[in-house]
Amino acid sequence: MSAPHLDIATFRYDTTRALFDGTVAFDDVDAALHTAATIPEIFAGLASGRFDVAEFGLTYYLRALDAGSDLIAIPVFPNRVFRHSCVFVNTAKGITGPEDLVGRTIGEFGMYGQDSGVWAKGILSDDYGFAPEKNQWVLGGLETPLSAPFEFTTHPHPDNVEISFAPPGRTLADMLDRGEIDVLFSANAPMNYLAGSPNIAPLFPDHEARERDWYRRTGIFPMMHTVAAPRELFTANPGLAQRLYQGFLSAKDTAAERYRTMRRLYQVTTMVPWMNGLFEGNRELFPEDWFPYGIDANRTALQTYLRYSYEQGLSPALRTVDELFVEELRNT
């Protein structure tokens, strides 16, 4: 039986680099690797059937399941980011901490409840009593005007949350800079903030310290994305889920081992000064496998994300972790 040809798409990360450069290959799979200029393009490609297997944002995946999609995930999480750092404020609005996020006009990229927004709202709710329904939400593009919400996904939101869209031709980054919105929840830092605008600041200037404290308390390194495919693909190809999982896992482990090995040379393969010191400091906080794949090592993080999605009115029911993943890999 010939190896199945699969169009597999993911962004180019440290965790996937070895798949693109050929250091790691999927066993018994004729794989064509794809990427895109932006990650939502990869999501759209999976939703449209252009890709057989692809990276998929957690919130997009849950929405697809709730809409009756036959997609099923493998427990691979190529993208993780701590999210205290993803909330920005206009400096003229008198916002000095999370207690000031009441009655505010808040921008969010693309849709209400994208992956980073779900994590940030949940963390703020757990630790600071943040209530999304006490604010007005404006959806739009961050740096480029967004003419319509993402068409490849559904757009649920609770009835008690007030939502509108950015005016035609306007971006959320510019609106925050001008004070037309008070706050921005964004997966990416606004370019005008990076360029030094005095009008924009992070909600938590000490976000790294807060994120490290949050990790110490929760043990969660938040994942944004998983990898999914139509369920029928795995049904028609027994063992394929395991082979895909092992390929993604080997690529991630190859990247992690590169960092471990380069300790001898002070991480000379990067351009970042004192990178070795950061790596050594992180080794004191994180376990040896600080970027785990599989279900068991990620169960607490996934349960937390599912709870956040349900509490924020994005999921009609509280799902279990195991139902998200192909049965063949539920013992990982």
Rank of each mutant, 00 (worst) to 15 (best):
S85D: 14
C86Q: 04
V87W: 08
V87A: 13
V87T: 15
F88G: 03
V89W: 08
T91C: 14
G94E: 11
T96F: 13
T96D: 14
G97V: 05
G97W: 05
P98T: 10
P98A: 15
E99K: 06
E99A: 14
D100A: 15
L101M: 07
L101I: 06
V102H: 14
G103K: 12
G103Q: 13
R104C: 05
R104V: 06
T105R: 15
I106T: 14
I106Q: 12
E108W: 00
F109T: 09
F109L: 14
G110D: 02
M111R: 15
M111K: 12
Y112N: 01
Y112C: 03
Y112M: 12
Y112Q: 01
G113V: 09
G113R: 06
G113K: 07
D115W: 02
D115N: 12
D115Q: 05
S116H: 14
G117H: 00
A120V: 10
A120S: 15
G122P: 07
G122T: 08
G122L: 08
I123D: 02
I123M: 11
L124G: 09
S125L: 02
S125P: 00
D126R: 11
D126I: 03
D126T: 06
D126N: 12
D126M: 07
G129V: 07
G129W: 13
F130H: 09
A131S: 12
P132M: 12
E133G: 14
E133C: 11
N135W: 11
Q136G: 10
W137E: 09
L139G: 04
G140V: 05
L142M: 10
L142C: 04
E143L: 01
P145L: 12
S147G: 03
S147W: 08
P149K: 09
F150V: 01
E151Y: 07
F152N: 08
T153V: 13
T153W: 03
T153P: 02
H157S: 08
P158I: 08
N160F: 06
V161E: 04
I163R: 09
I163E: 11
S164F: 02
S164D: 11
S164W: 01
F165Q: 05
P167D: 04
G169Q: 07
R170M: 13
L172P: 07
A173R: 03
D174V: 07
D174Y: 04
D174L: 05
D174S: 10
D174Q: 12
M175A: 14
L176F: 10
L176A: 08
G179K: 02
I181W: 11
D182R: 01
D182I: 00
D182K: 01
L184F: 06
F185A: 02
S186W: 04
S186E: 05
S186A: 15
N188P: 03
A189P: 10
M191R: 13
N192Q: 01
Y193V: 02
Y193E: 06
G196V: 01
S197K: 00
P198W: 06
N199Q: 15
N199P: 02
P202C: 00
L203F: 01
L203N: 01
L203W: 00
F204S: 05
F204Y: 13
P205R: 00
D206W: 02
H207G: 01
H207K: 04
H207M: 04
E208M: 12
E208W: 08
R210G: 07
E211L: 12
